[in-house]
Every structure is written in structure tokens, then in C-alpha cells.
Simulated assay, not measured.
Amino acid sequence: MKDKAPTASPRSRGDREELARLLPAPAETRLPQERHLHHKERLLNRIDNDRAGRSRPQPRRMPRFVVPVTALALACAVAAGITLTGHDRDGVSAQRDTVVNMRPAAALLDQISAAAGERDAPVVRDDQFVYTRKKAREVDLTSGTAVIGPLKDYEKWLSQEPGPLRKQGLIRTDGEAADLNAELGDTEGTPAGMNRPTYSWLSSLPTDPEKLLTYLYAKTPRFEERERDQAVFEQIGYLLGGVMPPDTAAALYRAAARIPGVTDAPKIQDAIGREGIGIVREDTRYGIRTAWVFDREDLTFLGSTSTLTRRTPYGGPGTVLSSSAETGHGVVDEAGQRPAEVTTQGAGRES
């Protein structure tokens, strides 16, 4: 069953943004992926403002992460009820598959997909929690220059109940615990879906790559002036890693191969220095390169990085905006409990 979260009106989105501006900043309750999106919002604001010659930043229709009831990572309304085809999805023609199959990135993603589809499917009950362990560096933009922070340890326990839930689970940052609360605006709680991808919900997604991509283009939030293909690529990246149904993981990789602008990177590192191969896409409007890192031997997902590709107010080409490394995952019965057996990421050791 697919996520049926209602579409928010423009007025409700405006109310959420205004509320976010008025409320104080909370303790950290999310993984670096969401915090990275917050910093990216500020960065895109700054670039837009400089291009337009404005001295004061103007608000963008992007998620904010300053509210106690959790970050608005991707909690803006989804485009529910939209049906897209290979012809009307941002002008991508029905001949795209022929072009895709000629790209090196498509061949690599096909291998990654095949490896993912061969992995064992775990048993995950609705009354359990999916545990994910990772290390990450986050960028600080408060000084006006991107300054990458120290490596931090993160552990997350995500409830698998379909919901809606007011309390999604638990997260520990360098040992300090905090609740994962419902998304802002979800007064009755956040249901399983794009913003809270439970194992059962992931299993319900289409496994045909074209149908899955159509679904993702329909459901990924739209932001003014945001490159659509990049938004969908990053939405897929948000879903990767952790405990994943093999068929869904395989379909996600094959869907990503159909997104225009996706390329490969023969040599790339995650946050802890594990070298692998990468799948990359650049947001050409803003000069931000997002990469997924995979182990060379077993093709498991290791983590992601985001860097600048050109000079911006926050730094020059190569400036790191975020870097993560997933080191293990599993399934447990209670939040805060560590699995007796943790599935480690990658065939090699951590650096």
C-alpha cells in the first residue's frame, strides 16, 4: 500500500514556514542527511541572492530544520494523485531507455542492482525497530564560509509501525539520545511513507524501475526553481542504506539509472576514508555534486558525499558540504537496543 499523505495547500506550507521561523532551534533529532538539506537550503539562498544582487537573504520554498517536532527534511506536501508518463515527466521521451543503456553509469547501476537483488531478505515485524549506525561530518555555514565539522557517531532506531506516529523512534549523536518526533504539521503523527520509510512501506513500492521512477517523480516534493531530476536523485539517496527489501533496492538503482545527468565516479571516498566507486549527479544550477559511494568488492552502499563544483559565497570547487559513512544495521525489538548481530557495510574494514 502506497503512502497516501494528503497534499498540503500553499497556505498550509506558508504557515509551516512561518511557524518554523518563530520557534527556537531544537536539539538534534535527525541524521546528517536532513541537516545537510538544511545547510543546502541556506547555501542555495545565498547563491540566488548574490546572483540577483540582493543584500538580504530571501526565503525559499525549502524545508527548514528549526522546529522541536523534528526537522522538515522532506515534510512538505507530496504531489499526491499525479500520474506521469515517460513522455510528460519533465520532457523525458520514451526513447530514454535506449540512451540510458549506453551510459557507463547505467551499466554500473545495473551491476549494483543485481547485487542488491541477490541479498537475503530479512524478517521485519511492524512492532520492531530498524537500527542504523553511521558516522558523518556536517558543514557549518554560520561564519559565511563552509566549515566541515568533526566526525560524529550516529545511531538511529526507526519504529516499523505503519502509524501515523507522534514518536518515530530514537537517535543517539555521540552517545546523546533524543526522540525522533512526528514531522511538523503531522498533528496526528507521521505515517509510513517517503518521510518515514519503514520496511513494509518500502516493500510496497513498485519493483518495475519505470513505474517506481514515475511514482518518485510524483511524490517527491516540488520546490520553486529546484531542478526536478536532482530532487528525485536525492530522494532516492535518502531511501538508500539500512535494512532494505532486496527487490526494492534493486528497483531503486535501476530507476536512478533512468534519471538524466547521472554519471559514475571510478574513485571516491566516504566519511571514514573507505574508497569505493560512485554514482554521481550535479545540480548544475547551484554547482553542488551529490555522490553515492559503493564498496568495490560487494557493491554495498557505503555512504554519500556532497561537494561544491564551482565558486560560491561559501567556498570553491571541492568544498565539502556533507559526508557520511554507514557502518552497520539490523533489526531489534526495542528502541535503544543494539542488534546481537550487526550487518556491516562493505567488504573491507573501516578506516
Rank of each mutant, 00 (worst) to 15 (best):
E224S: 09
E326K: 09
T344D: 03
T300M: 12
D126K: 11
Q128M: 10
R21M: 10
A106H: 10
A257L: 08
N45C: 13
L321S: 05
A52P: 00
G276Q: 06
S204C: 04
S204F: 13
Y286A: 05
D97T: 04
V100S: 08
I279S: 00
P317S: 15
E183A: 15
G348Q: 09
G328D: 07
E34G: 07
V280F: 00
L180V: 15
Y286G: 00
R61Y: 09
K135H: 13
S322A: 14
G346N: 00
R296I: 05
V123D: 04
G242M: 07
V243D: 00
L184N: 00
P313V: 14
G315Q: 12
T327Y: 07
K135S: 04
L184R: 00
V66D: 14
D186M: 04
L108R: 06
V99D: 03
A114R: 11
D186T: 02
R54T: 14
R96N: 07
R196P: 01
Q168L: 15
G185I: 11
E326R: 10
V130R: 13
Q58L: 15
A335K: 05
I236G: 01
F233A: 08
T312D: 07
E234I: 12
I288Q: 02
T207Y: 07
L321V: 08
L84T: 05
N181F: 09
A20G: 01
S323A: 15
D283M: 02
M102E: 13
A106L: 02
R56V: 12
Y154E: 02
L151D: 09
E188P: 00
R60I: 11
Y217H: 13
A121E: 13
T198M: 03
P266T: 13
A121D: 09
L37G: 01
N181G: 01
T85H: 07
L44K: 12
T309D: 10
D3A: 11
G91W: 07
P246K: 01
R30Q: 12
L165E: 14
Q58E: 15
T343E: 10
G163P: 01
E28R: 10
M194T: 05
H39N: 10
I279D: 01
P150E: 14
P59C: 10
Y217M: 02
A114E: 08
G53Y: 13
T284Q: 06
I236W: 05
A5D: 13
E118H: 05
P104I: 02
P57T: 11
S322D: 12
L302H: 11
L180S: 02
T214S: 14
E183S: 13
R46P: 02
P209K: 06
D174A: 05
Q128F: 08
A114Q: 12
V124K: 03
S159K: 12
E188V: 03
T284H: 02
T307C: 02
L19Y: 06
K167E: 15
L302Q: 11
A249G: 11
R42K: 12
S204N: 08
L22V: 00
E155F: 08
A325R: 11
E176N: 08
T70V: 03
Q160F: 07
E225H: 14
A251E: 01
I259P: 05
L213C: 04
D295Q: 05
D174V: 07
Q337N: 03
L216E: 05
T290F: 15
T319R: 15
A182N: 13
E18C: 00
